[in-house]
Design a protein around this nucleic acid. Structure first.
Length: 422
DNA sequence: TCTGGGGTCCTAGGACCC
DNA sequence: TCTGGGGTCCTAGGACCC
């Protein structure tokens, strides 16, 4: 008889912050927030107050550092900091208001990577089918692993949780359920350091009372739209006619909503996947203008292209599509991209094509972010040797499209800042 | 006092081809 | 000559996630 499908979702508790608490045990129990990992901001943090332990800076002192780190966000907050309403992705300045005494630490990416590898390798020694969902999160297929069926998966979950804590000194939360959708929700039931088991028959009792927002894939927009339709909980969503949801949200999304509300999800645990795109982007310390800050922007742009080329080379990929992204001072985002005839991983080529993309965007408003993206990737060893010249010739179609874009009415002929800049 | 950086997937329209 | 339908590629934007 085929065993029941048991899928686990595991995520590390307050990962970035917990790593720092291991290093500085004297901070245990205190509100601590971790910065957003902007290199300039981290350097400023470390340099700010050499008289004290330079890393222990209360967030209240952040306004003094505003010129350097004012645009930072929080990656993780300790549970003590969360008591004050501080959470991930919150701006540093807002955190400073909510809890002025909270200690701010910069992200130590080397440490994060080290612990990430450690907890994943610990899992793999016990359960081979693991899907990577980021530095601090995985799905695990328990179905055929010894202990994976005992007590609905609790026995194996306990074993893995214990092994991770022994290997890393950190805690994690685990949910085990018939599929990824329910496992992800279950892992949130008992944080931190918890285990939750969900069975198919728990749908009505444990899942339907939750708000729709708890579904992985329903974000703020969909949640708001559901609310305007009078649908708050997953149970209310399940009660809707599929055709109603399809009429409101479109064929794919509407049908999907109905399925997940009934706890149905047959996505497999995927142990490896090919990247779809790679990108580099940066938010400037102050908003920049295409004309007035031409030199600074140009240097940043070239740097991003160089880094992207290095990323491609390091990971062994070449790209056929090069694109750019920018964010205006009003937070609106614009993107442009261009597909080449061949593949490239060359920094100069990337810079040139990205520069042409930039020329197709109106640059009248100030910018706060610039990014460069490589897509339509291919493993570079799969590619036959193509001469560099050929790789960046635009296809006729791409060239036509670029020309059409240049002729577009929103573009100010000849006087576009893009022309002056590039 | 706002709001990082790196991703994935979906939609929709137009070009182009059969 | 007119008309239509399907399939694929390309581009832009947006929602969502970690």
């Amino acid at each position: 008889m085929r065993p029941l499908r048991r899928i686990a979702h595991l995520d590390m508790d307050a990962f970035f912050a917990s790593i720092e608490l291991l290093r500085y045990p004297q901070l245990k129990g205190l509100p601590v927030v971790i910065g957003g990992g902007r290199r300039k901001a981290d350097e400023a943090l470390l340099a700010a107050q050499p008289a004290r332990d330079p890393r222990f800076i209360p967030v209240a002192d952040f306004p003094l550092l505003k010129d350097y780190v004012g645009r930072g966000v929080i990656t993780t907050a300790t549970y003590a900091a969360r008591q004050f309403g501080i959470g991930s992705a919150m701006g540093m300045m807002k955190a400073a208001r909510l809890c002025p005494q909270a200690i701010v630490l910069p992200v130590d990416f080397d440490e994060v990577r080290k612990y990430s590898r450690l907890f994943k390798s610990t899992i793999l020694e016990i359960a081979p089918l693991m899907e990577d969902r980021g530095v601090d999160e995985v799905y695990i297929d328990f179905t055929d692993v010894p202990g994976g069926q005992r007590e609905g998966g609790r026995v194996l979950a306990r074993l893995i949780q214990k092994a991770i804590t022994e290997a890393t000194g950190l805690t994690c939360s685990v949910g085990v359920a018939p599929n990824k959708l329910l496992a992800k929700m279950a892992s949130e039931f008992n944080k931190p350091n918890g285990i939750s088991i969900v069975h198919e028959e728990d749908l009505q009792g444990k899942i339907w009372p939750l708000t729709c927002r708890k579904i992985n894939g329903i974000g703020p927009k969909a949640d708001e739209k559901l609310a305007t339709l009078g649908i708050q909980t997953i149970g209310e969503l399940a009660a809707q006619d599929p055709s109603f949801l399809i009429a409101k949200f479109g064929k794919a999304t509407g049908a999907w909503m109905h399925e997940v509300a009934w706890g149905r999800d047959d996505r497999p645990v995927v142990t490896s996947s090919e990247p779809v795109s790679m990108s580099r982007e940066t938010t400037f310390e102050r908003d920049l203008h295409a004309v007035r800050d031409k030199a600074a922007l140009g240097a940043i742009f070239t740097e991003l292209c160089n880094k992207l080329a290095m990323d491609l080379a390091r990971k062994g990929y070449a790209a056929k599509t090069i694109g750019i992204k920018l964010r205006y001072d009003d937070f609106r985002i614009a993107t442009r991209d261009q597909t080449l005839d061949g593949y490239t991983m060359d920094a100069k080529t990337i810079r040139q094509v990205a520069g042409q993309c930039l020329k197709r965007i109106p640059l009248d408003k100030k910018l706060r972010l610039l990014g460069v993206r490589a897509a339509t990737l291919e493993k570079s060893e799969h590619l036959s040797k193509i001469s560099e010249k050929d790789t960046f010739q635009l296809s006729n179609r791409a060239a036509d499209q670029a020309n059409n874009a240049q002729a577009a009415p929103e573009r100010v002929a000849n006087e576009s800042p893009g022309d002056q800049l590039f």
